[in-house]
Design a protein around this nucleic acid. Structure first.
Ligand code: SF4
Ligand code: SF4
Lengths: 145, 145
DNA sequence: TAGTTTTGGGACAAAATTGTCTTAAATATA
DNA sequence: TATATTTAAGACAATTTTGTCCCAAAACTA
């Protein structure tokens, strides 16, 4: 059950880490994040470039450079990130993979899957990076093995 | 959002097709299924070999040969198939992919994901091939684009 | 027995995903 | 200006997934 690609998983973990560093101002370097979270630096860099190109992050080069969220963490939701990294059709994907689906000509698992997808979309729509970051800051949850 | 691999999707569609052919006795050839459902014959054959090796199907070679469900379709549940094709740890997979998870040291999305996984597992545990096959037989649902 | 049908098994190829590396560009600081 | 730091970009390799193909084995039919 691979819901998210590795690239998305790494990107999300990294963003939540950034959101968890509430006090910090300025840029956080990708090197720091990849070290703390044990993620390949180059792989994470590529994912972050995508996020930068799509307005989730802004970047700054040179000493003390790095990346920063373009908006306050409580205004960035999981759906925003997933749309960039997995595509805007993320929540339209089908369990049985039949093209051109809908309620008109559904497959036999449609009813269940529609509800499951909506629950997931609802959760992603309403969960902000700030919310997840707080859980980490408060030591109750972890981002790394 | 790729919950199931192509191999599993094809296998499931094919099994539901078999279940939908209520009246038929004897073996159904893989060639017929692959043609009707527009699935690569060789790819489906490999998936079916896995299912045969794990007791979901029994096969018979030669003219009028093919495959058949080893049990009545109402005794074969989605979980059974998914366990064979995706692994028995299918429902243990994590949204953020942290190893060694559990309730002790959860990641920040654990609460939601645990509930979502349980809902899915519950559905898969209780949905039989017969149930899905009936929906297809009754013309209300489709298996092919 | 010979020929046909069908699954079994494995080699192989193509494509997608994941991961690594090198070089360039931008920026800061000494 | 020279050097160090850091992201940008893209080439490249490794791995996994997906898909194709060939031939053998089993079973039926004539
Ligand atoms: S009918 Fe519904 S569940 Fe089935 S493949 Fe289409 S959208 Fe997905
Ligand atoms: S803590 Fe829960 S949701 Fe998070 S990775 Fe582990 S099992 Fe999955």
């Amino acid at each position: 059950m691979r819901v998210l690609s590795k690239a998305t998983v790494y990107g999300l973990r990294a963003l939540v880490y950034m959101a968890s560093e509430r006090e910090r101002t300025g840029y956080v370097s990708i090197g720091e994040i990849s070290e703390r979270l044990n993620i390949s630096f180059h792989f994470l860099t590529k994912t972050f470039q995508t996020l930068t190109q799509h307005g989730i992050l802004e970047s700054y080069r040179g000493p003390n450079g790095g990346v920063a969220l373009t908006k306050p963490a409580d205004q960035l939701f999981l759906t925003d990130i997933v749309h960039v990294l997995e595509g805007v059709d993320f929540f339209d994907k089908c369990l049985l993979g039949l093209p051109g689906c809908g309620t008109f000509a559904p497959c036999p698992v449609h009813d269940f899957w529609k509800a499951a997808k909506e629950a997931m979309k609802n959760e992603f729509d309403n969960t902000s990076l700030a919310e997840l970051g707080e859980k980490v800051t408060d030591e109750r949850f972890r981002l790394v093995a």
